[in-house]
Design a protein around this nucleic acid. Structure first.
Length: 272
DNA sequence: CGAACGACCTGCAGGC
DNA sequence: TGCCTGCAGGTCGTTC
């Protein structure tokens, strides 16, 4: 599920419930996530207060008095706020319990996600290699131009590589490239300045709109099945193979790239 | 260093 | 109904 907008939505949904709250217990029912959940995680965190809830890339950072819990939702993870200790569902792997009765519950069918603990997130290997936030000032057309220069790889692979810019997943890579009239297989170093500028702008635009759309589901967040959805979000190409381009009425095509689906309008995004 | 690809895991839709 | 195949929003580690 989660691309950057959903992680941001999740952060905004859980933060009011757990910020400044003291952890009373952590229950791990399945340690076997992408990396094993520390067996002493509870010991490390009990009696500590959440000082802040932050997002970096698609990672959520729960900063404690000492140390930090790092959560990644992988492909299928989700966090919900509950106070129901009995109504467990399949794949409810971890509960972070607070003194006020609130439970932050981690569910992840595919277990591609992770719950890590670190003394110092600024030095954590998962975080130190990350590129700039797409919505921040450090991600601009100058940066993107520099990144693309000398790269023969497909532009879609480049913008999905967290080393160069974080948080752009398959959906929004496709959408941003469509709105920029760039074919996803175009070698990065073949893009001209106008295309770079446009792509940079569209990445920001598409992500901002999606966060806005995710935000509309926030009020339901604390309910049991309060999964943020994309129903407010208009997708122009992703998942629309065989349908008409909303811009020019040509038929959207699906191609495979890096063993993942790319969707293009052959008219709006000419082959390189 | 960059680029390509397999790996991790479950659930679901579609075909037979 | 069941079995099989292919596909899914991420990203790490290995290899060339």
């Amino acid at each position: 599920m989660p691309e950057l907008p959903e992680v941001e939505t999740t952060k905004n949904g859980i933060s009011p419930h757990i910020d400044q709250q003291c952890i009373s217990d952590i229950v791990v029912r399945n340690h076997n996530l992408r990396w094993p959940v520390l067996s002493n995680l509870a010991e490390l965190c009990i009696e500590q207060t959440i000082q802040s809830v932050q997002r970096r890339s698609k990672y959520l950072l729960l900063r404690l008095d000492h140390g930090c819990i790092i959560i990644h939702l992988g492909m299928s993870g989700s966090l919900t706020i509950t106070n129901d200790t009995s109504g467990l569902k399949k794949h409810d792997h971890v509960d972070i319990c607070f003194e006020n009765g609130v439970i932050l519950r981690y569910n992840d069918p595919r277990r591609f996600g992770a719950i890590l603990w670190t003394e110092n997130p600024e030095a954590h290997p998962r975080l130190t290699t990350l590129g700039p936030e797409p919505l921040g000032r450090a991600f601009n057309s100058q940066h993107l131009a520099l990144v693309c220069a000398n790269k023969t790889a497909a532009i879609k692979a480049v913008i999905m590589n967290a080393k160069w810019v974080v948080g752009v997943g398959n959906i929004y890579a496709n959408e941003a490239l469509f709105h920029s009239n760039i074919h996803p297989e175009t070698p990065a170093n073949q893009l001209n300045t106008n295309q770079i500028n446009k792509l940079c702008k569209q990445i920001k635009c598409v992500l901002r709109l999606a966060i806005k759309a995710g935000g509309t589901t926030l009020k339901d967040f604390s309910q049991a099945d309060g999964k943020p959805g994309y129903f407010q979000q208009k997708l122009w190409v992703y998942g629309r193979a065989g349908e008409d381009c909303l811009h020019c009425q040509h038929t959207i095509r699906r191609i495979n790239q890096q063993q993942r689906a790319s969707y293009i309008c052959p008219n709006c995004q000419p082959t390189p």
